[in-house]
């Protein structure tokens, strides 16, 4: 029997594998992004880039908790002009590169895209859902008019696919997804991390320097799966599932509730960079066992019940 087909398309972004590197992980160096691609990722998403350089928060910026990790890096990034230089250092036309952008208003997003426009970036992901940087994350996502302005401004500036990454901290993530679809988003990425804390009981203080951070890892997977499930019933554009994928079984769950692709971040902390190849193999074996020739055949199957 032929190997099952794992290739997918999200608008004009073609991927050999549905497993993407999530934003925020290993994503400021082009060499590292390429390495993750060579290690089996179907596409790689950069760390979120803003207009200005940001140093981020002091350490500790990460701490492990039961079932996941908590981080508050603070959107550290070299700034769009410096990142343009980073991407110009080598040929990227063969790299399925998605640039993640954050900003406080629509003009920042369009300016950033106009700077990157001439480069072979394959798609953009708008991070309007960082849980721990005031003014740049969830606050943006909560303001429907602002979300609309940003997506419209970005779509005006580029023909490339635009993904919108939503926050699980919203009261109504389905409405946010519908809104993104209505104003022209090409896909929805769900979800970003969950606002959370961890306290050291010996010194009686929050461990993260920023006190509050974003929770990722297996502990958030069931919530992310639910978000994908609900959004799938309400929008037609592709959904990129993100949240706690460590093993191939996790990935399959996301496909069954309707994800076209999934992103992996914290999974690398648990399994290393071989996580992409391992999950890819697991998906192939699963599809073979189920007698499916293509990954597309299982997307959304959980909705039949």
């Amino acid at each position: 029997m032929q190997e099952p087909d794992l290739s997918i398309e999200i608008s004009s972004l073609k991927m050999e594998s549905p497993l993407m590197l999530a934003s925020g992980i290993l994503g400021t160096s082009i060499e590292l992004l390429r390495r993750v691609f060579e290690d089996g990722a179907g596409a790689v998403v950069t760390k979120s880039i803003g207009y200005e350089q940001r140093m981020g928060y002091d350490n500790p910026t990460i701490v492990e908790v039961y079932g996941g990790y908590l981080n508050a890096i603070g959107l550290s990034n070299p700034g769009i002009k410096e990142f343009y230089k980073e991407l110009s250092r080598s040929k990227i036309d063969d790299l399925p590169l998605v640039v993640s952008l954050f900003g406080a208003e629509s003009s920042e997003f369009s300016e950033m895209i106009s700077i990157l426009n001439e480069l072979e970036v394959k798609a953009y992901e708008l991070n309007i859902s960082c849980p721990h940087v005031k003014g740049f994350g969830v606050e943006v996502c909560q303001d429907a008019k602002l979300v609309e302005d940003i997506i419209e401004a970005v779509k005006k500036e580029t023909q490339k696919p635009v993904f919108v990454k939503l926050s699980p901290n919203l009261t109504d993530i389905v409405n946010a997804a519908k809104l993104a679809e209505d104003v022209g988003a090409d896909a929805i990425t769900v979800t970003n991390t969950f606002k959370a804390m961890s306290i050291d009981i010996e010194t009686c203080r929050p461990i993260l320097a920023n006190k509050i951070g974003g929770l990722s890892g297996p502990v958030i997977k069931p919530i992310a799966v639910r978000c994908v499930y609900e959004i799938y019933q309400n929008v037609d554009i592709p959904i990129i599932g993100c949240g706690g994928v460590v093993d191939w079984q996790d990935a399959i769950e996301f496909f069954l509730v309707g994800a076209t692709a999934i992103q992996i971040g914290t999974g690398i902390a648990y399994k290393g960079l071989s996580v992409f190849e391992k999950i890819k193999q697991g998906i192939k074996d699963y599809l073979t066992l189920k007698g499916k020739s293509s990954l597309r055949d299982i997307v959304g199957l959980a909705h039949g019940f």
Binding site: I25, L26, T28, E31, L32, N59, I62, G265, I268, A269
Partner: peptide, 13 residues
């Protein structure tokens, strides 16, 4: 920053 191979701060090549 992270020390565990996920943030990328310490990359060289």
């Amino acid at each position: 920053k992270c020390g565990i191979g996920i943030c990328g701060s310490c990359c060289i090549g």
